[in-house]
């Protein structure tokens, strides 16, 4: 589904990704771990098309298409979703409008019928339950005045509404208490299908107790320095990152 080869990316002239290669197949969950500043979030954002980074070398092929040729909205319409580490607040625009607009854009791209506000409420009813959110939040402004946990839940809610083929969770666990973490992970697991894939970017092993990965990769200094199964995450938790960095 996703094949990244020798990816190099810079921000403000500084090279952050220095040759990342990664293959993700349908039905898989991959965890990308690594110390702070290793380039984990950059990788997630480059896949989604963040304007702050420039890809200088390498390729990202998604479903047979060169992803780097597509605008961020086209990537989303093709089924790529990034749950932001810092979701943006949009005062004055209700969640209902925002979610329905996004939902309709994606349906339009798939050649499906658009839905009106009443039909959309029916769609939302079940999605809200998935992330344990009050329907009142639909009438609040997007993320404005939300707590950290509410913002992260709102990201997963958007994911549930848009049903992406490739979901990338960028540090979705940071700042969450254990209950919120369970809700968020439960949402992600419920959305898992044999036809889609998930990339979980995280600093801590904790989230991986709830979202069990098929593969774990360690990113350091802009490269993947080690890959393994889910047991690698436990080993990193016990021993830290130094031994991997030294071995690399």
């Amino acid at each position: 589904m996703l094949k990244i080869e020798n990816l190099h990316a810079t921000a403000g002239g500084k090279e952050i990704l220095k040759g990342v290669s990664l293959t993700v197949n349908a039905g898989e969950v991959h965890a990308i771990m690594g110390p702070n500043g290793s380039g984990k979030s950059t990788l997630a954002q480059v896949i989604a098309g963040h304007p702050g980074f420039e890809v200088t070398q390498g390729s990202i092929v998604y479903d047979g298409e060169n992803l780097l040729d597509l605008q961020p909205e086209e990537r989303a319409q093709h089924g790529v979703f990034l749950a932001f580490q810092y979701p943006v607040e949009i005062p004055g625009v209700t969640n209902a409008y925002f979610l329905r607009s996004a939902y309709n854009e994606i349906r339009k791209a798939r050649g499906e019928q658009q839905v009106d506000p009443m039909e959309f409420l029916d769609v939302m009813e079940q999605k809200l339950k998935l992330v344990d959110m009050d329907p009142d939040m639909l009438h609040r402004s997007v993320n404005a005045g939300f707590s950290g946990g509410e913002k992260k839940r709102n990201e997963i809610l958007q994911m549930a509404v848009l049903e992406p083929k490739l979901a990338i969770l960028d540090e979705t666990d940071s700042g969450l208490d254990i209950d919120a973490l369970r809700v968020v992970a439960g949402g992600v697991n419920a959305l898992k299908k044999p036809t889609n894939a998930t990339i979980v970017v995280t600093h801590y092993q904790r989230l991986l107790n709830y979202i069990v990965p098929d593969k774990v990769h360690v990113l350091a200094h802009g490269k993947i320095v080690k890959s393994g199964g889910k047991e690698l995450a436990l080993e990193l938790e016990a021993r830290g990152y130094d031994w991997v960095l030294e071995a690399a």
Binding site: G49, P51, P72, A76, F81, V88, F98, I106
Partner: peptide, 16 residues
């Protein structure tokens, strides 16, 4: 730009 990217990453076209 970041807010624009947020909306685009949810499938909204640049003008919208």
């Amino acid at each position: 730009d970041i807010a624009l990217f947020y909306l685009k990453s949810r499938g909204m076209g640049a003008d919208h």
